[in-house]
Amino acid sequence: MTKEFICVREVNLPASPDDVWDAVATTEGLASWLFPMPISAVGEGTSSWEPPHHLAIRIERGDWFNALEYVIEGKDGSSKLRYVHNGIFVDDWEVQYDAVQQHTDFYLHTLGQYLEYFKGQTATFVGDVPGGIQGPANSSKADSFDRVKKALGLVPEMQVGTNLHILPNGLDTFDGTIDYLQPNFVGIRSSSALLRFFGRNAFGQPVGMTIHQFGKVEDAEGIASKWKEWLDTVLG
């Protein structure tokens, strides 16, 4: 049974409308906080392209559709973004609705982190598009994300702003700060990267992660492979 959903958010962002537009309406910008995808004034489904204030995209397939809208307003040197995502879910409506609401909060928070700490830079998206780096199939089990958080060194008393010193096997030491901490999502920011961890086991899917790596990246595939090995070891 199909049913329509809608997700609406309004957020303040520490950047001008032009900077926000570059983040949401260019492939390079999207890679820096979401994932890279082709986008242009004449791209598939583009119904409004009014830089830097209004972007709307709607993709239709028969009775199914997926639509995104960004409305950007300047506000005292910063910007207010109204974000609307609506469409059709075919199966497991309540689970998918919960997932899209929680993912939206995490993604828009990451957009804010990008604009506050890495504005004007572009990132290499490490991993497969759009999912990033996936844990093993069995990581859809109930305790999987708790195991990832434990492996990252997270303990209950930690909170947003806590510094972390991570020693993943086979990878360079990672020093960062917790910038997002919810039961199903963890964000860690370093001076050169945004690491995002997704407890998608809460929605019946494997745990995953994405890396938005700023600066020169010599071997993105190698980095992804090593983090994949880390996830497989933690969750195997």
Rank of each mutant, 00 (worst) to 15 (best):
E44I: 09
E44D: 14
G45L: 12
G45H: 14
T46E: 04
T46L: 10
T46D: 07
S47W: 00
W49K: 09
W49V: 07
W49T: 11
P51N: 10
P52Q: 13
P52L: 10
H53E: 05
H54I: 07
H54N: 05
L55A: 03
L55P: 02
A56D: 05
I57P: 01
R58P: 02
I59D: 01
E60H: 14
D63W: 03
D63C: 06
W64F: 09
W64H: 01
N66M: 03
N66T: 01
N66A: 10
A67Q: 06
E69A: 11
E69K: 13
E73R: 14
G74P: 08
K75F: 12
D76Q: 12
D76C: 11
S78I: 01
S79I: 07
S79Q: 08
L81E: 06
L81V: 05
H85G: 03
N86M: 06
N86H: 15
G87V: 06
D91F: 11
W93G: 04
W93S: 11
E94L: 04
V95T: 15
V95A: 10
V95F: 05
Q96I: 04
Y97N: 11
D98H: 02
D98P: 03
V100A: 01
H103L: 13
Y107V: 14
T110N: 12
T110Q: 14
T110K: 05
T110Y: 11
L111C: 12
G112A: 01
Q113C: 06
E116A: 10
Y117M: 08
Y117A: 09
F118W: 04
F118D: 06
K119F: 08
G120H: 02
Q121C: 05
T122R: 11
A123G: 08
A123S: 05
T124G: 03
F125T: 05
F125M: 03
D128P: 00
D128M: 15
V129I: 15
P130D: 12
P130R: 15
Q134S: 09
Q134M: 12
P136R: 12
A137E: 08
A137Q: 13
A137N: 12
N138S: 12
N138P: 04
S139H: 01
S140N: 15
K141F: 00
K141S: 14
D146M: 06
V148R: 08
K149F: 00
A151Q: 05
A151N: 07
L152V: 00
L152C: 03
L154T: 09
L154Q: 05
P156G: 03
P156T: 04
P156E: 01
E157M: 09
T162E: 09
T162L: 04
T162G: 13
N163I: 14
N163S: 15
H165S: 13
H165I: 14
H165Q: 10
P168F: 03
P168E: 11
N169H: 09
N169F: 06
N169C: 07
G170T: 02
G170S: 00
D172Q: 06
T173D: 15
T173Q: 12
F174G: 00
D175Y: 13
D175A: 05
D179N: 11
Y180N: 01
L181Y: 15
